[in-house]
Design a protein around this nucleic acid. Structure first.
Lengths: 259, 259
DNA sequence: GAGTGGATTTCGCAT
DNA sequence: ATGCGAAGTCCACTC
């Protein structure tokens, strides 16, 4: 009969008990938290060594691993989802080895003292939604081109050209062609150069005046200069405004637009 | 008198107790782990919403935050180090708000059920060492140029030229100039183009034959083609071998070489 | 302080 | 499967 409790906790378990509990948790594909004194070795795309110290180890249901120090939001050592595990005693220490194929790499974490071991059965159906991505900004522009400039008429989006994709492509109020490159965050030189490439690419195929507009919430100082040098335009656009536009637009209209 | 125990654990604490314990832990700059049913909202560079579900929240000593779902090694929501915190009751739920300036952003996590709350005082002096970085590979080549090819004599390293820095620069057994570009992982087109730029840059200043060699553990298929087209060379080099070479070389010799 | 480039980047999407 | 570009990228280093 499966354990329906959301979690089991062991405080200061002996190493051999910790080994048994870890093996069980991993074989049952549960989430495992271990807190204690540990060291780690990683071999794969690079090699790394983590000397002994007190840390948090998390092994998740999907076979991903992370070792957290008491500082920094990123793990000091990790392994992506899909690992195979081996747990065993190594000179009196609890060793957990997480092996991943493709790329072939292995992370071994050893504990000589476990302060806390917890086995979790997390039920999580809640969705995660991220707003105002580059795509959301693009949709907002297509739905309400006036946020860029009055009289702009979008023709296509994600148009394939030689160096990549053009975010939005249209005609301005005076009938000139417009190419828009969108950045969801501060635009740097790369963004300006990318836009320049798109404009150049179109110029060679269509012998006509092209306006390039960089759309982003902000622009870096160096990028601004480059923009002027290359004769390109810039229009600031707040991602929050895009979120608002999308919120105000009914789902049906959106679906029809992007079908 | 400070609590010297490495950790305190509360199982299924009432929400108000969880609030008190969280406030205390955060004010004392300890590491806090919360497991329970929660939801989260993020406002900042983008906006995100995480609907209710059972997850793990970690707040570290340095004011970093991560919310982990039961899958994926990366957090679903997070906040970099240096946050300010507000904890309060919100409609019967425990709310923890992590605010960061620069960029201005806030993450709010609310719990209506806490299964586990643990306050940790982690002592971690252990160092983390990552082997076989690009720099380590460069050192290995300078110490043992024969791993690239017999008769190679390095002249300089990190030589400044127009587009950037050349990793290693030397003379081959036939007296021809050699430019080496190192990548610690699979080399892509960018690496080939970078090397090509360096070679071109030198060709213009020195009117002499130049050999460009790309050194990397692997090379992408597209990059391989480009390499052939541009008439450049490629030498596979395992970063682990570099680590070995450096391990075999005494620290003194290294210090003398790079002084 | 801002800009630039690397990362055991990861992740997703298109080819 | 592979390759390319984006990310709330983060992070470290340079200017």
């Amino acid at each position: 009969m499966p354990d329906r409790r959301p979690l089991v906790v062991y405080e200061n378990p002996p190493i051999n008990e910790a080994l048994e509990a870890s093996k069980k948790a991993i074989s049952e594909q549960k989430t495992l938290i271990l807190v204690g004194n540990c060291w780690a070795d990683y071999r794969g795309r690079a090699s790394s060594k983590l000397e002994p110290g007190e840390r948090i180890l998390i092994i998740k249901e999907d076979g991903s691993v992370s070792v957290h120090k008491s500082k920094g939001y990123e793990p000091v050592n990790w392994q992506p989802p899909g690992c195979l595990f081996q747990s065993y005693m190594d000179n009196g220490a609890l060793a957990i080895k997480a092996i991943k194929q493709k790329p072939r790499e292995a992370l071994t974490v050893c504990f000589d003292k476990v302060y806390l071991l917890s086995v979790l059965s997390l039920i999580d159906e809640g969705q995660f939604i991220l707003y105002a991505s580059e795509e959301e900004m693009q949709k907002a522009i297509l739905l309400q081109p006036s946020i860029i400039e009055e009289g702009l008429k979008p023709i296509t989006y994600e148009k394939k050209v030689e160096p990549g994709f053009i975010d939005v492509y249209g005609i301005d109020k005076d009938g000139r062609m417009v190419v828009i490159e969108i950045k969801r965050k501060t635009a740097g030189k790369e963004a300006v150069l990318q836009l320049a490439k798109y404009v150049e690419s179109i110029k060679t195929s269509v012998n006509r005046e092209i306006r390039g507009i960089l759309v982003a919430p902000q622009i870096a100082k160096g990028a601004q200069k480059l923009l002027v040098t290359l004769g390109l335009g810039y229009k600031p656009l707040d991602p929050k405004k895009c979120t608002e536009i999308l919120r105000k637009t009914e789902t049906k209209k959106l679906a029809a637009f992007f079908k």
